[in-house]
Amino acid sequence: MLIFLFLMFMQFSLLAVGGANAIVPELHRVVVSELHWMSGQEFAALFALAQAAPGPNVLVVSLVGWKVAGVPGAIVSLIGICLPSSLLSFWVARWWQQARGSRLTTAINSGLAPLTVGLIGAGVAMMAASHPLSLTGGALLACCALLSWRTRLNPLWLLAAGAAAGLGGLV
């Protein structure tokens, strides 16, 4: 199981363009729909926990590994997701410094931004589909998205508002 987790997350590592949140839809599909390691709601809970915890977004991977194979699973999953992309980033950064300003690097920059936004948007859609959204939940989501986009409000305040709404039974 540990070797399978390591190899699976090595593959995900190279798909995580823009960060670990970009692979959330595919990770959800594999661990929930294909391998049946957990339900959609369990996955959503692990994702929410990883987002609420301080640190990088990649924490969701270690929580999935932990759910599947305990502490060794968490460690192996984290190494699997970090190692290939770190090595690739190192090699690409060295090349990027040499090719900076070229037409190719400009084209890559132009193409990666919309790709990253699309992958993260797909993650949001997948998480929304795995948990039913009420009218108040949708309104809270819309307000938080608008405030995140238009203000410099610390996201922790938005998280606190969501937690208060949940505790109050509004969502």
Results as ranks from 00 to 15, higher is better:
Ile108Glu: 05
Ile108Tyr: 00
Ile108His: 05
Asn109Met: 15
Ser110Val: 07
Ser110Glu: 03
Gly111Lys: 10
Leu112Ala: 13
Leu112Phe: 10
Ala113Asn: 04
Ala113Ser: 09
Ala113Gln: 10
Pro114Ile: 01
Pro114Trp: 05
Leu115Lys: 12
Leu115Asn: 03
Leu115Thr: 08
Leu115His: 02
Val117His: 11
Val117Gln: 01
Val117Pro: 01
Gly118Gln: 13
Leu119Thr: 03
Leu119Ile: 07
Leu119Phe: 08
Leu119Val: 04
Leu119Asn: 08
Ile120Glu: 02
Ile120Ala: 06
Gly121Met: 07
Ala122Thr: 02
Gly123Thr: 04
Gly123Asp: 14
Gly123His: 03
Val124Leu: 01
Ala125Ser: 11
Ala125Leu: 14
Met126Thr: 12
Met126Cys: 09
Met127Phe: 05
Met127Leu: 15
Met127Asp: 11
Ala128Gly: 09
Ala128Met: 11
Ala128Arg: 15
Ala128Tyr: 00
Ala129Trp: 14
Ala129Thr: 12
Ala129Met: 15
Ser130Lys: 04
His131Tyr: 15
His131Ala: 02
Pro132Tyr: 04
Pro132Ile: 10
Pro132Phe: 08
Leu133Trp: 10
Leu133Ala: 14
Leu133Gln: 10
Ser134Trp: 06
Ser134Gly: 14
Ser134His: 13
Ser134Phe: 14
Leu135Ile: 12
Gly137Ala: 13
Gly137Arg: 12
Gly137Ser: 13
Ala139Gly: 09
Ala139Asn: 02
Ala139Phe: 06
Leu140Cys: 11
Leu140Val: 07
Leu140Phe: 03
Leu141Ile: 03
Leu141Val: 10
Leu141Asp: 00
Ala142Asp: 07
Cys143Asp: 03
Cys143Ala: 11
Cys143Asn: 03
Cys144Met: 01
Cys144Tyr: 08
Cys144Thr: 03
Cys144Lys: 01
Cys144Gln: 01
Ala145Phe: 05
Ala145Val: 13
Ala145Lys: 05
Ala145Ile: 14
Leu146His: 03
Leu146Thr: 15
Leu147Thr: 13
Ser148Gly: 07
Ser148Met: 15
Trp149Val: 01
Trp149Tyr: 09
Trp149Lys: 11
Arg150Asn: 08
Thr151Met: 00
Thr151Gly: 05
Thr151Trp: 01
Arg152Trp: 00
Arg152Pro: 02
Arg152Asn: 08
Arg152Cys: 03
Leu153Ala: 09
Leu153Asp: 13
Leu153His: 06
Asn154Ala: 11
Pro155Glu: 12
Leu156Asp: 01
Leu156Tyr: 14
Trp157Arg: 02
Leu158Asp: 08
Leu158Cys: 13
Leu159Gln: 09
Leu159Pro: 09
Ala160Phe: 11
Ala160Thr: 07
Ala160Asp: 00
Ala161Ile: 03
Ala161Tyr: 12
Ala161Thr: 06
Ala161Trp: 09
Gly162Met: 06
Gly162Lys: 11
Gly162Cys: 06
